[in-house]
């Protein structure tokens, strides 16, 4: 009897968890930006803001996939150890770069107002950074990976039509092309960025 109760409890608990976390991509983005806006509006130091933004980014961005995409087809030539090293370095670089970019904004208000399903894996969510007296409105689109609807993840940020992932990919390609596709040069560059 007791086992049955425990089983039922676990079943309902899991169902409840699934229900709570099953969100549509637009709701997911709105809740993510609300969280980020809250941090940016706080009266805390820039460093503290960056630390808290990194937590949000870790939970909501598919950093591994963005890392693979940024690396391009050269990833297929790397061995396992190199890939692991790359992903670790990339995560550090990405979190620093991403949170540092965002931390420049104070009290941003972002409104999500639309979405377009690209296919079963991706949805593009449309939002707008509301204009203030200091800056005009800015269109921001979010490429959300929806393969697991219970755990949507951001894979790209498109600001006024400019893709952050593509820019990053072309930047990495430029570093590799200038150095005979030597992955160690990219490793060093990523390391240097994260340490500075």
């Amino acid at each position: 009897m007791k086992m049955k109760k425990i089983f039922l409890f676990l079943l309902f608990y899991n169902l409840n968890i699934s229900y709570v976390y099953s969100v549509t991509p637009d709701v997911f983005i709105q809740s993510t930006v609300n969280g980020a806006s809250e941090i940016l509006s706080k009266n805390i130091s820039k460093e503290d803001k960056i630390t808290q933004l990194k937590v949000i980014a870790k939970d909501t961005v598919d950093i591994k996939a963005v890392g693979y995409y940024s690396l391009g087809s050269i990833r297929k030539n790397l061995d396992n150890n190199q890939l692991i090293k790359y992903l670790n370095l990339f995560e550090e670089y990405f979190l620093k770069s991403f949170s540092s970019r965002l931390s420049e904004y104070t009290n941003p208000k972002i409104e999500v107002y639309g979405k377009k399903v690209l296919n079963e894996n991706y949805t593009m969510v449309n939002s707008m950074l509301i204009a203030t007296s200091d800056r005009p409105e800015v269109k921001i689109d979010w490429r959300v990976y929806t393969k697991n609807p219970n755990n949507p993840l951001i894979r790209d940020l498109i600001i006024e039509g400019l893709s952050l992932a593509r820019t990053q990919k072309e930047e990495f390609a430029s570093i590799l092309n200038s150095n005979d596709n030597d992955i160690n040069v990219l490793f060093k560059t990523l390391e240097k960025f994260s340490k500075n």
């Binding site: 770069s97 540092s100 072309e170 930047e171 560059t189 990523l190 960025f193």
Partner: peptide, 13 residues
């Protein structure tokens, strides 16, 4: 500040 290769970033953008 946030570019690994500023030249390449500007070109891409």
């Amino acid at each position: 500040k946030n570019s690994l290769d500023f030249y390449a970033s500007v070109r891409s953008l």
